[in-house]
Amino acid sequence: MNGSRLGSVEESFIGRLKPGDSFVFAGRVWELVRFRDMEAWVRRAKSERAAVSRWAGSRMPLSSELAQSMFEQLERLSGVSAAASSAPRPGPVNSERPLAGRGSPELHAIAPLIELQARRSRLPVRARLLIEQMTSREGHHVFVYPFAGRAAHLGLASLLAFRLARGKPATYSIAVNDYGFELLGAEPFDPAPFTSGELLSPNDLEPDLMAAINAAELIKRRFRETARIAGLLVQGRPGERRSARALQASAGLFHDVFARHDPDNRLLAQARAEVLERELDAPRIRACLEALSGQPVDFVPIERPTPFAFPLMVERLRERLSTEALGERIARMLAQAERGA
């Protein structure tokens, strides 16, 4: 509270605290006094209990090493689970604890979930690609689990959605996490292109990926950052009362003006390059597709979401990819809304 500077915390963390809440920072426990204009004022806290500061922005994708060891752990379990799910069960599974005593306490803790996964679908394993398909009120879902990290999954999902929508104009909603991704569409998915390997082919990867990110809203999203660094977005600085309102326009508007009147603009090219490098992890996508090519695919219809599918289904941060013409897209959406979808 005496005005000395302690360091930076992430806004998403501090924004959730109320004045009076305490948190650990710089090795001490602090109490939040007020948070205004991007500055958090704190004093030494008397309380011992405190939240631990978190930085979520630097979320790193799952490394391939970690993915491999996850597969190893899953494989250690899969033998047991497969036996448990195929054998006739006399009583409730949990009471028997067929997985108890195997592996670490963590593995022990998630054993019921793993078993549910095996019962409703299959466990993802290294040599086979698991794809689950489900229908809900939201539409038709496919869940794919390549275990390649969220960045590569975003690229893979965009690529798949683009290749699916190339033949037949459609709009897909995409969710990703470190284990897999989900495509959600209005029409049922045909398993054939998934199982034949056609969709997951590493051929024409770069041009298809480029076209996919153009169809998705990724570049427009990334353009906000590019425009800010280029000085196009005039933001209020901490402590500044009024920003230059006359100059305010959204990054989306700038993106559209550039795309229409100056499509070769270097800021657009920069945003596109950053999407490819930083958000999609293009080299890992290629490696992943090459590893997947020739692998057998398990295309499993599921009735209810599996433990692996559930977090993807409820993920609210979603991407969208559309190859429909605007007029047709609006017409379809309105018809859908009238039906009460």
Partner: peptide, 10 residues
């Protein structure tokens, strides 16, 4: 506007 999986601002 929103319908099913899709949403747009117009």
């Amino acid at each position: 506007i929103a319908a099913g999986v899709d949403a747009l601002v117009r």
